[in-house]
């Protein structure tokens, strides 16, 4: 039996009829067409599908869409404000923290969840926050530098 659900993604409500076995990831990509969120392992190990649910980073592949109800979801598409990129997006570009780009949306969402909770994290906390995001190009150092730079920027404001 399909379930009628209302998802709130990046501030917009979507009314959908979904099969219970459909993951939040598949709904975001296939039903909403928001393909910035990537599908890697589909078993909660690679972090490519990381989105923010009620302020917390989660693997969208490990959440059923029917479970979401009333929770607020933010995907990578929700970060930029009109033409203006989010400071994390700017920092990733500036630091060359993107190689193939596949892990980038997940990395940025994990970083955002961290900075929203803790604007000035230690390096160890940054590493901990992105430990669940695998970068197969192994560009971790630039990624950590990029996140640090945003933390610093916010500190000086």
């Amino acid at each position: 039996m399909k379930h009628q659900i209302r998802l709130n993604v990046n501030g917009a409500d979507y009314d959908l009829l979904v099969e219970p076995r459909k993951t939040l990831l598949d709904v975001i990509r296939n039903d909403l067409g928001l393909i910035g969120t990537k599908k890697g392992c589909n078993t909660g190990e690679c972090g490519a599908c990381t989105v923010i649910m009620d302020g917390k980073a989660v693997n969208a592949c490990l959440v059923l869409a029917v479970q979401v109800k009333e929770k607020k979801i933010m995907t990578i598409e929700g970060l930029a404000e009109s033409e203006k990129l989010h400071p994390l997006q700017e920092a990733f570009i500036h630091h060359g923290a993107i190689q193939c780009g596949y892990c980038t949306p997940g990395m940025i969402m994990s970083a955002k969840a961290l900075l929203d909770k803790k604007p000035n994290p230690e390096e160890g906390e940054i590493k901990e926050a992105i430990a669940g995001n695998l970068c197969r190009c192994t560009g971790y150092l630039s990624i950590i530098e990029a996140i640090k730079s945003v933390a610093k920027t916010e500190r000086s404001v």
Partner: peptide
């Protein structure tokens, strides 16, 4: 696990 896993 990871932060994402610990969160749920």
């Amino acid at each position: 696990g990871t932060q994402q896993v610990r969160n749920i």
